[in-house]
Amino acid sequence: MSNHPETLRLNGVDHTAHPTWKLKETVHFYRDIMGLPLVHAVTAKGWGRVDEQHADFLHFFFDSGNESLIAFFHYIGTEQPPELKVPRGYMSLANHTAWRVSTEAELLAWQKRLQDAGVKVSQFITHEIIESIYFRDPNGYPLEITRSLRDVEQIDAVDAELTIEAALRLEGAEGWTNIEQFWRAKGELVRARQDAALSGRETAR
């Protein structure tokens, strides 16, 4: 729950940005295969900082809808540092961009468009509140297209608070190794919530 009394809000994603050492493939993928309009490009001689030895670069933006952009930096004459290569394995998939579509038909159409262009795309994966397809861009960056299955309700936020509260109790604890321990810790919080609600009902009588 927020402790900030003033109303200070963010208004959605303006852009995310990633480095690329595959200029041609990246433009082909986003502009030609996905069909995202190329809407803006910056070109600069470094940032003018001599000491930093910042490479000259291109910075270009594709329109991903609803006033959001996905952008790339191309640093001229540089090699991709090993630490910026997308690692294999599921953990690196956490670092991803997910775009929203409205309908199942749209999600199917995206899946088909990508598959027809030779992109390896997952089957539909149904989560609690969304349904998604997953794929990677030519840089290996993980991408997702998703549709909402239902609105998020107040009870979802309550549940998320209890989840985080239970997790914070366990974080750093010796021997926390699995989700069963977490589910049990959360069960204690949910029971306390139910007990409080039931005793409130008794008091109200």
């Binding site: 994966i125 149904t126 989560h127 609690e128 549940d159 209890l162 989840t163 239970a166 989700i179 069963e180 589910w183 049990r184 959360k186 069960g187 204690e188 919080l189 949910v190 029971r191």
Partner: peptide, 18 residues
């Protein structure tokens, strides 16, 4: 339940063991 939801179906909390 689909697999993704199935493997999270105890997310409400558990008093017991798996």
């Amino acid at each position: 339940l689909g697999e993704a939801v199935w493997f999270g179906c105890l997310t409400g909390g558990l008093d017991g063991r798996i």
